[in-house]
């Protein structure tokens, strides 16, 4: 790590400092964080500090890049051209370890005004795609991965990172005329990955939280008809806990926070085969929910 001039990426709920001598990585970063100009303020503090450093040029199987955090490289290296997916994935992992002041849900989040829709789901259930589609349909983007619950204020906070779309989702979202996507990285550990860029307004409001208004547990099932059922609060609490990075670690605090969300927000289980049906359904439910 010879060059340690850090660049600050302020994503709302967290500040990430990243250093790298790789010019290509900085280009990739500019593409997916286009609204991040001055580093977002002058506070010399970052929640995580990472460095992306190239490996030896002479490696027979191709040059690699490593992610360093506090003198350690906690992950396997990636091919040199895939520094951005490594940064996104690695920084997400570090954030999930360190932000235990919040209840961290594994969820997409969008909002209208100060009312948020939380979409908790396991990987592979189409949560990122649905979050991006909602954003393209006019909702404010919070995150496709982290539902950051500020337990003291009862708010959900934006974590404004680009959404990592995988495989078929990339084309689904690219069809939208307004969609801005970064380069496609083929053949990563999770298949093809491309990063969806949230709009400038969402970015500028990244420090403004919203109240949990509705919780939707989404599941994309190819070819399936739309099915939407209300989830009783008691069951919603358990499912919120199951879709959390740190519910267990927080013990009673996490339980109380999950109960509070379930009391405050109506919860639904949504399975769908057509993205547009799902969007329309969420719109309708949102308007109906008091």
């Amino acid at each position: 790590m010879p060059d340690t001039s850090y660049r600050i990426v302020d994503v709302g709920a967290a500040r990430i400092a990243v250093a790298s001598p790789l010019i290509e990585f900085h280009h990739q970063l500019n593409l997916v964080y286009p609204h991040q100009r001055d580093g977002g303020g002058d506070v010399p503090f970052a929640d995580i500090r990472v460095a992306l450093t190239p490996g030896s040029k002479l490696r027979f199987w191709g040059r690699q890049v490593r992610l360093w955090s506090e003198s350690q490289a906690p992950f396997e290296p990636y091919p040199i051209g895939s520094a951005l997916p490594l940064f996104e994935w690695g920084s997400n992992w570090l954030l999930s370890q360190r932000l235990n002041a919040y209840l961290l849900l594994h969820a997409g989040v969008v909002a209208r005004g100060d009312q948020a829709v939380i979409l908790p789901a396991q990987p592979g259930s189409g949560k990122s795609t649905l979050t991006c589609a909602l954003h393209l349909a006019g909702w404010r983007f919070f995150s496709d991965e982290f539902g950051v619950i500020d337990m003291e204020r009862g708010l959900v906070l934006p974590m404004l990172k680009p959404a990592a779309l995988k495989n078929a989702s990339i084309e689904v979202i690219r069809q939208h005329t307004n969609a801005v996507l970064g380069p496609v990285f083929s053949g990563t550990r999770k298949g093809d990955v491309a990063h969806f860029v949230p709009d400038k307004e969402s970015f500028e409001e990244r420090r403004t939280g919203a109240h949990p208004h509705m919780v939707v547990f989404p599941r994309y099932v190819a070819g399936a008809p739309l099915r939407c059922l209300p989830v009783p609060p008691t069951e919603a609490v358990m499912r919120i806990g199951l879709n959390s990075f740190n519910y267990q670690t927080l013990g009673p605090l996490g339980f109380d926070a999950a109960v509070r969300i379930a009391r405050q927000a109506r919860a639904y289980d949504l399975s769908y085969g057509d993205l547009n049906d799902a969007l329309a359904c969420i719109e309708t439910l949102f308007d109906q929910t008091p």
Partner: peptide, 20 residues
């Protein structure tokens, strides 16, 4: 400062969980 307090709180909670 708020972020400092949050990080200390985060560490405290993980330690308490391990103790539990």
């Amino acid at each position: 400062a708020d972020p400092v307090r949050r990080h200390l709180l985060s560490a405290k909670r993980v330690a308490e969980f391990r103790t539990q």
